[in-house]
Design a protein around this nucleic acid. Structure first.
Lengths: 236, 236
DNA sequence: TCGTTATATTAAACAATGTTCAATTTAATC
DNA sequence: GATTAAATTGAACATTGTTTAATATAACGA
């Protein structure tokens, strides 16, 4: 292979990020362009009917380009989910930041979770949709954001037990927070699907709609859980 | 239109279900054939990758035939969901039919719900998947089955309060049952998605897997809820 | 028994989808 | 200004759900 060295010499050139670009946008700009466009389309139509061609067209590109930036469609949606999770987190934090009473704060958090889900149904659906495992890695920021959500609940639960003392069983608190919030999440899911099926005879003349039912179920769940939490954990 | 009556005469013949059949199967047999085939494929692959061609091929027919029996693919899946819901219901009933203690029964129900979901993940996913509204009507048997599931919880909650007395507030019981079961459902969903994200430092050297976590979360939720239920409702 | 009629099923087509990749355009480099 | 490498395209590919004209077949009437 006498010619190999001569050929390899050409490959030693340092690559440049801007080489050969045709558009105004850097790779990172393209990333956010794509994610924002996808998010917008999902808000309008739901993720199920958003196509690669739609996303590309809405930012003035060709579908093929998307695959130079993201691994596949599912990869794009994963990064949309990151945005959604961030919005959800902010919405929850804002809903209760001025409420010092931990029990009331939990109720506000529950209402916020439901209101976000019902006002951003398509985003919420995608966030918790369970596709069979695609070949795209979960962004590492996702677990962090979920934990941050749980932390809000954990704090409230700790405050409920000991407003002054600060030595709770962390394992127990983490478990309780996840149990309680699983409940709020489940009620939200069932509420969105309108799956409560209250017997008509049980309710009065004016049957509550799905949204009212959900809020009632969530409130009940939180109240009962808090009552149980206080009953089983004696105030130190 | 002098000829009209002559033509119309032919149309007065009574239609017969077996007219022109080429196969051994009646329309109803085809319905169950299709549903069973779809169910089997969903168990193996998950609904997301089951195609009309696969279903048709597995029962020795052509995809076009499916559309003479069902409105569309979503319609087929809805009827698969009916089977799934029936299995889930049976699984739950069987899990606790010999347990007289209502609190223990609720725990068994929770375990059963989780075990069904984790052993039939693909079916469970399809059952609660929230597609954007397709044009196929929900089978009327579905609400009935969901209510039957809630009834198991309602009964246990009533027994918890008054083992002998039988005059509970029905609205309150219905609400509490849905709240509690929303929780179990939510914990199941989050568990399947492995979204609990317990901080590693909180757990001991041997971190529990997703299944163990889910069962623990579900147990905690039920125990706390029951404690709250007993605390807020004085025994009559 | 033999056409006639109504149904059941097919086969082929359709438009739309996600994705790939050779070809092309463009910018940076020598 | 020629060369090199990256960015983007555009056309293709295999699949998908679904429709529909054509066909095969069973029941009916005489």
């Amino acid at each position: 292979m006498a010619c190999a060295p001569a050929i390899l010499r050409f490959h030693t050139r340092k690559p440049n990020i801007f080489m050969g670009r045709r558009s105004e946008h850097s790779r990172d700009e393209l990333r956010t362009l794509i994610i924002d466009a996808a998010l917008e389309l999902i808000k309008e139509q739901g993720s199920g009917s958003v196509t690669a061609r739609q996303i590309a067209k809405s930012i003035g590109y060709t579908p093929g380009m998307l695959y130079a930036v993201f691994k596949n469609q599912h990869d794009i949606f994963l990064h949309v989910n990151l945005c959604t999770l961030e919005s959800l987190q902010q919405h929850c934090i804002n809903s209760c930041r001025n409420q010092p009473d931990p029990a009331k704060r939990l109720l506000l958090l529950g209402k916020a979770y439901w209101s976000f889900a019902s006002e951003h149904t398509h985003q919420f659906d995608l966030l918790f949709a369970r596709h069979e495992s695609q070949d795209a890695e979960i962004p590492p920021a996702l677990p962090v954001r979920v934990q941050a959500l749980f932390a809000l609940v954990e704090t409230a639960l700790v405050e409920l037990l000991s407003p002054s003392d600060k030595d709770p069983n962390k394992d127990q608190v983490a478990l309780a927070a996840r149990a309680l919030w699983s409940g709020v999440h489940g009620a939200t899911e069932l509420g969105l699907s309108d799956l409560f099926f209250f017997s008509p005879e049980n309710s009065k003349t004016d049957a509550p709609n799905a949204a009212q039912q959900s809020e009632q179920v969530i409130d009940t769940l939180i109240q009962q859980f808090v009552a149980g939490w206080l009953a089983t954990n004696p105030i130190k």
